[in-house]
């Protein structure tokens, strides 16, 4: 039976393997969310977070671009009100809002014939249309992981883009490496989704993460 870790726990686990994540906090109440948001500055993002909540977007459990403490207060109360008993214990995740035009998806899975594999692909709203994804078996050395970026069909996603600098390849690969290392190190991880990995000023940041345990 597969169980999932909350977004916050998934990120904590993977940050230990070098996943680049934002400085974000988990809080229990709307008041604490406001304190955290005031601390990190605006705009910010609020999410309802819990081990049993795997797909936040589908349930509208994410609030983006919150510009004031009043927005945070109201959104926090809404989100806490959306929790259902099946969610179990929940908390609020407060994070700075990242603006990015490019998205990637990075993941790993160990349920197929080849055992553990790692994946990188082009993310965003058309990800499922283009399905531009590349896999490698784990373990994979640095050179093998680096070649994954060359194998993407949409090479233009890695270059300079709408006034933004080219993607820092080594930094994007650190996401793949973190995911790969976690899979090697932890046999109890069934799969990992980092979706999306945003590219801000050329740098990759994991803004959502989901770890599923066997």
């Amino acid at each position: 039976m597969t169980t999932t870790l909350s977004e916050a726990e998934s990120k904590r686990l993977l940050a230990g393997y070098g996943l680049p994540v934002l400085d974000e906090r988990t809080v229990a109440t709307a008041a604490a969310a406001v304190v955290a948001a005031n601390d990190m500055g605006y705009p910010c993002v609020l999410k309802l977070c819990g081990d049993a909540i795997a797909h936040k977007t589908e349930r509208n459990l994410v609030r983006l671009s919150l510009g004031t403490s009043a927005d945070v207060e109201r959104s926090a109360q809404e989100l806490l009100g959306q929790a259902i008993s099946a969610d179990g214990p929940v908390e609020l995740l407060v994070a700075p809002m990242v603006r990015a035009t490019r998205e990637f998806i990075v993941g790993a899975d160990r349920s197929g014939d080849f055992g553990p594999v790692v994946m990188i692909g082009v993310g965003g709203i058309f990800a499922e249309v283009f399905e531009d994804v590349v896999f490698r078996l784990l373990p994979a050395d640095e050179r093998e992981l680096d070649a994954m970026l060359d194998d993407l069909d949409t090479q233009a996603m890695l270059g300079e883009f709408r006034g933004e600098p080219a993607v820092d390849r080594a930094q994007l690969l650190s996401v793949v490496q973190a995911v790969g290392n976690a899979m090697i190190d932890r046999n109890d991880i069934e799969s990992i989704d980092i979706n999306p990995v945003l590219i801000a000023d050329g740098n990759a940041i994991a803004v959502d993460a989901l770890v599923a345990l066997v």
């Binding site: 597969t2 999932t4 795997a54 998806i105 993941g107 790993a108 899975d109 349920s111 197929g112 594999v117 994946m119 692909g121 399905e131 994804v133 896999f135 069934e190 799969s191 990992i192 989704d193 979706n195 989901l210 599923a212």
Partner: peptide
Amino acid sequence: ARAAASHTGSLA
């Protein structure tokens, strides 16, 4: 493609 809980699994 296998029915999978993860996005990665469904692309795999």
